[in-house]
Computed example of a mutant assay.
Amino acid sequence: MALTKKNGDFKDKHPKLRAGGTTRSAPPRRGEHFASTDLPTLCSVNERTIRSYGDNMPPAFSDEERSRITEQLLNAATLLFSTQGLRKTSLEELTAPAGIAKSSLYAFFASKEDLYFEAMLRQSEQVRRRVIDEGLNLGTDTRDALRRFLRATIAELHTNLLYRRLMSHPQEMAAVAAKLTPERMAAAQGGPMADLLTFLDTRVEGDPEVLLGVLRAVLLTPLHADHLGAELYPAVMDRLIDAVTEGITSC
């Protein structure tokens, strides 16, 4: 006898029910409705799903924990990105010093690139103070100001590994920029080079972009100091700085 959900008994169609066993009902076809006996099964599935998502959610952090962990993440990022670069640095390496899971990084930064950018911003503020406030702005005249800027920046390249990395691997900054919004990237527009560009525009004759390029070319030389030799390098840099600053301020 062909029975239906509406007017028949399932026992004639399902041997397990005739034997006192149980079976899981099939999903309803179009036009049918779940019976009330299906609800426990649906609820248990939803509970398992919620628990599964809950297990993977980052834990909540107090303000004190957030401050401590943020600082630890930035310190780890500065060291690792300086020595290994963006691509070779893993999330696990970044989060391990802070004692948090890899997924918890996203409770502090939008991405690995965002963390790199924040570490760069922090370095940029420190670099600006040393090369602009304590360098360029203390010059007795335009030529002396540019000499001070170049010497302070070269010293920074020898001691600040992340700043050196940014100068020697510009493609990493391009990779970071590709993952960030224009609004986020706008935070980097006020760095040391922007201050230098403004100085050149107001104090030196000529296209400020070209002049900036000339000074940046000088700053690439320390990246190849080994090719010049330890004995010659200091004297070479002194003559190069004098020649370039005299040349662009004599026009």
Results as ranks from 00 to 15, higher is better:
residue 79 L to D: 14
residue 46 N to V: 13
residue 231 E to L: 02
residue 73 L to Q: 08
residue 112 K to Q: 10
residue 25 S to D: 10
residue 4 T to P: 11
residue 98 A to T: 02
residue 219 L to P: 06
residue 104 S to C: 08
residue 102 K to Y: 00
residue 57 M to K: 13
residue 10 F to Y: 02
residue 52 S to V: 13
residue 111 S to Y: 01
residue 100 I to R: 01
residue 84 Q to V: 01
residue 187 A to P: 05
residue 189 Q to Y: 10
residue 55 D to W: 03
residue 182 P to F: 02
residue 106 Y to L: 06
residue 57 M to Y: 01
residue 87 R to I: 06
residue 203 R to F: 00
residue 8 G to W: 15
residue 72 Q to E: 15
residue 125 E to C: 04
residue 123 Q to T: 03
residue 128 R to D: 15
residue 97 P to D: 01
residue 102 K to H: 01
residue 58 P to Q: 05
residue 184 R to P: 07
residue 120 M to R: 13
residue 195 D to T: 05
residue 133 D to L: 09
residue 60 A to H: 11
residue 75 N to P: 03
residue 74 L to P: 12
residue 115 L to T: 08
residue 84 Q to D: 10
residue 132 I to V: 14
residue 92 E to H: 12
residue 76 A to P: 06
residue 229 G to T: 07
residue 192 P to D: 15
residue 171 Q to G: 13
residue 158 H to I: 01
residue 121 L to T: 00
residue 105 L to T: 09
residue 139 G to T: 05
residue 152 A to K: 03
residue 56 N to G: 11
residue 223 L to N: 03
residue 158 H to Y: 15
residue 58 P to V: 09
residue 53 Y to S: 04
residue 210 V to Y: 15
residue 248 I to E: 03
residue 117 F to T: 06
residue 234 P to S: 07
residue 222 P to G: 07
residue 145 A to D: 04
residue 60 A to I: 09
residue 137 N to Q: 14
residue 251 C to Q: 04
residue 181 T to V: 12
residue 178 A to H: 05
residue 32 E to K: 09
residue 198 T to Y: 12
residue 189 Q to N: 15
residue 197 L to Y: 09
residue 18 R to W: 00
residue 187 A to R: 15
residue 149 F to T: 10
residue 1 M to G: 06
residue 52 S to K: 08
residue 59 P to H: 09
residue 11 K to M: 04
residue 17 L to C: 00
residue 17 L to E: 00
residue 119 A to D: 06
residue 121 L to C: 02
residue 145 A to Q: 09
residue 127 V to Y: 03
residue 174 A to I: 03
residue 165 R to K: 10
residue 154 I to N: 04
residue 32 E to D: 14
residue 121 L to E: 05
residue 109 F to I: 04
residue 231 E to V: 00
residue 208 P to T: 03
residue 27 P to N: 09
residue 115 L to P: 13
residue 181 T to M: 09
residue 230 A to K: 15
residue 93 E to Q: 15
residue 181 T to A: 11
residue 245 T to M: 01
residue 176 V to G: 07
residue 130 R to H: 09
residue 178 A to S: 08
residue 144 D to A: 06
residue 68 R to T: 02
residue 231 E to T: 03
residue 67 S to A: 14
residue 205 E to T: 06
residue 186 A to E: 13
residue 104 S to F: 00
residue 87 R to A: 12
residue 223 L to S: 06
residue 114 D to I: 11
residue 97 P to F: 03
residue 97 P to I: 00
residue 171 Q to A: 14
residue 222 P to N: 04
residue 158 H to N: 13
residue 4 T to C: 04
residue 155 A to L: 12
residue 4 T to Y: 15
residue 143 R to T: 09
residue 216 R to L: 08
residue 201 D to E: 13
residue 64 E to D: 12
residue 145 A to S: 14
residue 85 G to T: 00
residue 135 G to Q: 01
residue 246 E to N: 03
residue 224 H to T: 10
residue 241 I to G: 01
residue 206 G to W: 10
residue 54 G to I: 06
residue 43 C to Q: 11
residue 39 L to E: 13
residue 229 G to W: 04
residue 213 G to D: 14
residue 123 Q to H: 09
residue 230 A to P: 01
residue 71 E to G: 10
residue 95 T to Q: 12
residue 205 E to W: 13
residue 223 L to A: 02
residue 49 T to V: 15
residue 139 G to C: 07
residue 138 L to S: 04
residue 99 G to R: 06
residue 226 D to E: 13
residue 73 L to E: 07
